[in-house]
């Protein structure tokens, strides 16, 4: 619906009477109103028709000559005769250049990607080696710890398995004499350490006996002598296998020992 105001503005616009802000505002309104545009176009035609009311005058003939002289033919016709063959090599060259640029760009891009992937791989490898080293280090520590614990357990087991017995003196002249006997049932061997036992004559020996309830008589553990300080350490084995030890005993025997204890007992320990 066109208002009277719009009709007035359209008429003024058609006669070129709208200026400045008034013209801008109307043309803005015109842009969004097809009906108004149609009215303006129609009034524009009417306004242009007023030109015919002017007294008709024939322009001088020279005006046409002047116009045609000043308006040389335009180059539009040249577009029709497009010499394809002439420009084909250039088109091919342009395509080749474009292709080369494209491939160059792709190569550059792929190289950059490849370098990036290599860097990532190197970093991953370094991280892997570091982790591997840490694991190895931890593994060694664990192994050492296990070994240490194992050794401790073994020592404790050995100690629990071993039979350790302190032997006391039974002689009146050597009250201070002391001896400790340690027996390993697995190895069927033992260690006897003696202190402050009186030294013996050359025709005498001390003889160690191991009392096992499984045997009627004590089992021979070997003979020994002590030095001037009354000390010695003897690694001994028994003549017969020992199952359970009831006591250790040391007797004074003739040199070389006897199969069955005969002399007085010097030390005894259960």
């Amino acid at each position: 619906m066109i208002t009277e105001r719009q009709e007035e503005q359209a008429a003024l616009h058609a006669l070129g009477l709208l200026e400045g802000a008034e013209r801008s505002a109307f043309e803005h309104e015109l842009a969004g109103d097809a009906e108004l545009r149609a009215l303006v176009a129609s009034l524009g035609e009417t306004s242009a028709a007023l030109a015919l009311t002017a007294p008709q005058i024939v322009p001088p003939a020279a005006l046409k000559d002047r116009l045609l002289a000043a308006a040389p033919p335009r180059a539009a016709a040249a577009l029709v005769e497009f010499p394809l063959a002439r420009y084909a090599p250039w088109a091919v060259a342009a395509c080749a250049t474009f292709a080369a640029l494209w491939f160059g760009f792709q190569t550059f891009r792929l190289r950059a990607e490849n370098q990036s992937i290599r860097t990532e791989r190197d970093l991953a490898e370094i991280a892997y080696k570091m982790t591997q080293g840490q694991l190895k280090e931890r593994s060694l520590l664990t192994e050492n710890m296990i070994n240490r614990l194992g050794n401790q357990l073994k020592r404790q087991e050995d100690l629990s398995r071993m039979k350790v017995t302190a032997l006391a003196s039974l002689l009146g002249n050597s009250k201070e004499a002391q001896a400790i006997a340690v027996w390993d049932p697995d190895l069927q061997s033992g260690l006897l350490t003696v202190d402050k036992l009186p030294a013996l004559a050359d025709n005498q020996d001390y003889q160690l006996w191991v009392v096992d309830p499984a045997y009627q008589n004590p089992v021979n553990g070997g003979v020994f002598k002590v030095g001037a300080d009354g000390h010695t350490a003897l690694v001994f084995k028994t003549d017969q296998p020992i199952g359970k030890i009831a006591a250790f005993a040391v007797s004074l025997e003739k040199k070389g020992g006897v199969p069955k204890a005969e002399g007085p007992l010097v030390l005894l320990g259960k």
Binding site: A51, P55, P59, K64, L68, P73, L79
Partner: peptide, 21 residues
């Protein structure tokens, strides 16, 4: 489209009313 004679022909048809205006 580059018709050389078109301008002259259009001039023949419109020059008089335009010149009069």
């Amino acid at each position: 489209s580059g018709d050389k004679s078109a301008l002259g022909r259009l001039y023949d048809l419109l020059a008089k009313p335009l010149y009069s205006l």
